[in-house]
Amino acid sequence: MSRPPTAVSRPPIAGVLKYYYSIDVKQRAGWSKIPCPLHVDSNPSASANTERNRWNCFVCQVSEDSIDIVMREEQLGFREAQAWAHARFSGSGEDVLPAVQGESGRGVHHGPPSGRRSREVHPGVRRFGADWT
């Protein structure tokens, strides 16, 4: 019998962005515009949300939480990044349940924004329950 997943702590996104990229995020409700930490910006093309503990770039089409940043920057797995972040950021932040034990379940998302996904069509393949009569 497997044990239920335990809550994991994520450091605040504002602290992580400040630590790695010297980006100041305004502590307010909703999304705040920030320069993208992954490419040179003349105008801010990214935003961060301290309530959702996420940032995303509209140009790169990247979306991450604070643990995802630590995993990428420190080249660590989820559990190692969680322990590293807990030691570095004093474990402050929100508690979340991972989708899969040992996995963040919220990794970097590349590709078109949601709602604009194109489906690949395979001739002769149909979904279960489709009626071709």
Rank of each mutant, 00 (worst) to 15 (best):
T133L: 10
I67R: 05
S42R: 10
R10K: 13
S45N: 14
W31F: 12
C57P: 11
Q75M: 07
G30M: 10
T6G: 07
S9Y: 08
D95Y: 06
R117M: 15
T133N: 15
F58H: 13
P112D: 13
S2Y: 01
S63R: 10
V121M: 15
Q101W: 08
Q27I: 02
E80D: 13
L76K: 15
E51R: 01
G91Y: 04
M1H: 08
S66N: 09
G107E: 08
Q82V: 15
R28A: 13
F58W: 04
G30W: 05
N43C: 14
R88E: 09
H109R: 13
G91C: 05
V70S: 04
V25K: 07
D41A: 02
R28C: 03
Q82H: 11
S9R: 15
V100Q: 02
V70Y: 02
S22R: 09
E64L: 08
R79V: 12
R54E: 12
L17N: 06
G30H: 07
S9E: 07
E51M: 05
P5E: 06
V25G: 00
I13L: 14
G115W: 13
P123K: 11
S90M: 09
V108S: 02
S2F: 06
H39M: 05
W132F: 02
S9I: 14
P98A: 09
Y19I: 00
E74V: 01
W132Y: 08
D24R: 10
S9T: 13
P37E: 01
F89V: 04
Q61D: 12
R88A: 11
R88F: 04
S47G: 12
L17H: 01
R72L: 07
Y19A: 11
D65C: 10
S90F: 07
N49G: 03
V100L: 05
S114K: 12
P112A: 14
R119M: 13
